[in-house]
């Protein structure tokens, strides 16, 4: 399957996680890993699974590298109909009111433009005990399985 991992990052933690997910999926799939800041919204296609990894920064805001992408989506009438994505968020429950709002905002934005979200949004808590990759790798495997049944073909 064609998989594009898109990450929105501020400190680099989401980028590192995106690369880990890419390494884990690389053997069985055609994987690329791209910063949202380098991904034109016109490049989405219906044959690809998009795995989105996005942190939260400041007061529940999108991280810096996701902001230009979000601005373009907000400004235009881009249709993401037929696009499938799953999303994983990074956040810190020290800031409980806005915990993982970055990934929440981004998921909303993608679905508002017609993209289909596969599975529940998964989240990591920097103040929790789990390592991000221990949650994200099973999430990615699950998302790939959902996409395979949705796309009606294996790998």
């Amino acid at each position: 399957m064609k998989i594009v991992i898109l990450y929105g990052t501020e400190t680099g933690n989401a980028e590192m996680l995106a690369e880990d997910i890419g390494d884990a999926l690389d053997a069985d799939h055609e994987v690329t890993c791209t910063n949202l800041s380098d991904f034109p919204v016109g490049e989405f296609d219906a044959e690809t699974l998009y795995l989105v990894v996005c942190s939260t920064y400041g007061d529940g805001e999108l991280p810096a590298s996701a902001q230009p992408f979000a601005e373009v989506l907000k400004a235009g009438a881009t249709s993401l109909a037929g696009v499938h994505f799953a999303i994983f968020g990074l956040g810190d429950s020290e800031y409980e009111e806005t915990f993982n709002f970055g990934s929440k905002r981004l998921a909303e934005l993608l679905t508002q433009h017609g993209a289909v979200q596969l599975g529940e949004r998964a989240t990591h808590d920097a103040s929790g005990v789990d390592l991000a990759e221990d949650l994200a790798l099973p999430w990615a495997t699950e998302a790939v399985a959902l996409a395979e049944s949705r796309f009606g073909k294996a790998a």
Binding site: T11, G12, N13, D92, A126
Partner: peptide, 15 residues
């Protein structure tokens, strides 16, 4: 000391 989430960048640095 009570902002351990911000200190998590050290995982990147360890790599």
């Amino acid at each position: 000391a009570d902002h351990q989430g911000s200190k998590a960048v050290t995982r990147q640095f360890a790599r």
